[in-house]
Design a protein around this nucleic acid. Structure first.
Lengths: 233, 233
DNA sequence: GTCTATAGTCGGATAGAC
DNA sequence: GTCTATCCGACTATAGAC
């Protein structure tokens, strides 16, 4: 056993540091504007290492995207396992669906307002503007499964068809309330006069989102009941 | 009178064409990635014209930002004049506030899903990620006044304090539902299977947003009435 | 595997002819 | 006012020493 880390371990560490630096700079400046020089410097690695380990700047960008997908996946897995167990029974218990809708959205909000995920969500925002291969990768592996489960929970509580476009849109609109606090972050900071989004601000945002969820879900459920009553008369 | 346009008119036309080309390419590729050469080519102008008329690439970018501010201002002015007339009376009529909330949000949605404003909103999205002087300019001139009026309408219907942070957040969350259809455009396209957001899609989105507005506003109003009842008991 | 040196390209900006 | 030619810096990527 050598005293210094094995070559493989050193390589793995170099890759990890380049991915971390890439996440930082790609999110801050965008994939085209961030330079390999600066990434290498921040990672404490040589410029040539990027090309040795990832083939190209774009290769590093895709590795960063995969890291993001893994991170989101891992952060939501415990909750999603419970949701899957609930949704395995059909029809799922409406009150439990409602509880998990709130729990999931609060968890997403916590994750999205966390400082450590700011760079991650900046890359996702950029990918919405200029979708590349990276968005497909992240969408397929994480966004779509999360979005789909959330839609099925909404359907489970309200009685809507989980595959209907309207149900998807209702769900997306609800998620949009949460997203707007990250994607229109600058607007909300200027309007409220906050200089940052810390724990007290997030607490307030979560309270407001929880109220909106209730109002929209109950509205949707009542509407659904009304439609079915009309259908049976 | 010369047959050819006067020098001033030619200069104005050159500036307008450079701004149009800048809007197109800055939105598509971002301020750093878009090149002066390509902008000049698309505008049918010489590269040197950018520096002659705007001093620098950044000068052109700020001129594009001012064009966007003017566009948003002009597009909303007729409605905002009516809203100002309504809000001049204190307290404003709640039912009229409600009508204008829906009217405004439908108008914003129409504007935001319009193909001609796609590039405009891409620049705004980018400015949320990497705020520059341009965002301050647009925010102060247009976003803040619109956001503030919308907040006052919500306050007018629900009885909330228009300057309370909670009211601003409730309003922002509601606007966020609409924004998410533009800012998370790629997600919604992949989830619904739409290949575009055309008139039929926008109609469906507007229906759904109108329902959510009703549910949230009535929830907020009932909540406010409950709080006041507790206060008086 | 890791680094230095450098090739090759393209960017913003300018000087100076017309 | 308008255009061409060009400077100069910075970028990605690679060749080749170690």
């Amino acid at each position: 056993m050598p005293l210094s880390p094995s070559p493989t371990a050193r390589g793995e560490q170099a890759k990890a540091q380049l991915i971390a630096a890439g996440l930082e700079l790609f999110s801050e400046k965008g994939a085209q504007t961030a330079t390999t020089r600066e990434i290498a410097r921040l990672a404490g690695q040589n410029i040539a290492a990027i090309f040795y380990y990832f083939g190209s700047k774009e290769g590093l960008y895709l590795a960063v995207a995969q890291w993001i997908a893994d991170f989101i996946q891992q952060a939501n897995q415990p909750l999603m396992v419970e949701v899957d167990a609930l949704l395995a029974h059909s029809p799922a218990d409406p009150e439990q669906c409602r509880a998990y809708i709130i729990k999931s959205l609060m968890s997403f909000t916590e994750l999205l307002t966390n400082k450590e995920t700011l760079n991650l969500s900046k890359i996702l925002s950029r990918e919405q503007l200029m979708p590349t291969e990276a968005y497909q990768l992240i969408h397929r592996q994480t966004i779509a499964p999360l979005h789909q489960r959330f839609t099925r929970l909404v359907a489970g509580y309200t009685g809507c068809d989980p595959s209907a476009t309207a149900t998807i849109l209702h769900t997306h609109a609800l998620l949009g309330e949460m997203l707007s606090f990250r994607m229109a972050r600058e607007t909300i900071l200027l309007r409220t006069g906050w200089d940052d989004m810390g724990p007290p601000q997030v607490t307030l945002i979560k309270q407001i989102l929880a109220q909106h969820i209730d109002w929209v879900l109950n509205g949707l459920r009542a509407d659904r009941a009304r439609v079915q009553a009309n259908h049976h008369e």
